[in-house]
Amino acid sequence: MTGLEVRGLSKRFGGLVVSENIDFDLKPGDRKALIGPNGAGKSTFANLVTGILAPSGGEIRLDGRDISRMGEAHRVKLGIAKTFQITTLFPRLTVRDNIRMPILEREGRGYRLLRRADGEAGIEAEVQSLIDQFELGDLADKPVRDLAYGQQRLVEMALTLALKPRILILDEPAAGVPSSETSLITRAIERLPQDLAVLIIEHDMDLVFRVARKIVVLVQGRILTEGTPSEIAANAQVRELYLGGGHD
């Protein structure tokens, strides 16, 4: 099958089990959200899928191919990309330079010593189209550290999308973004390419319910339930365990 298949995935840190027997599918066009209380193992799951962490057990397959033991760089080449919980950009480089970097890597230009990095018309056009897609035109030549946090999140999404991933993992895309700027993030997610498989890990329930078509609830490293937003909203167990716990 195409897409991401996770079967029986486990991760232990010493005696601490942070992921236990997780089964999970993500197909092209999916918009899934992964929610759960703090410490449920959401980020660990994302790191297992991207290859930052090695699993203790179970399997991760991409298009039927086992990638469980593959390194991070290799998985990126196969099309798995992720944004970080805390914005991770090149702060002193401009928006344009930030977005160009993954394209140069994707196209295997990284060892070129003589031609200018910004000297290829095809690559520059692609950079520009991403800048336009995320409405970053006015900021394109500013260093990203001078941007508002919400805008930096957009740059990070543009940068990640520049890898032309097939699986995109957004780790808390709205974390730290002031509520006045959350709509920017929501809109950007809504505009992602239709055939892209997207997994969103998020605390902001408004955002989750706006963009996700399926929601997976993770509690203490296990999947509690999976369903459509309305099913999850109606699920008594979820309400008690998670949504009821101080969520307004």
Binding site: L89, L113, A117
Partner: peptide, 25 residues
């Protein structure tokens, strides 16, 4: 070299090693 893709990738590593790893460098 500083203006070439290789030089840019070094600046990228300088700025954020994690981000460079995450874009497959």
């Amino acid at each position: 070299i500083g203006r070439a893709p290789f030089g840019m990738s070094l600046r990228g590593i300088h700025e954020s090693r994690d981000r460079m790893l995450a874009i497959g460098a």
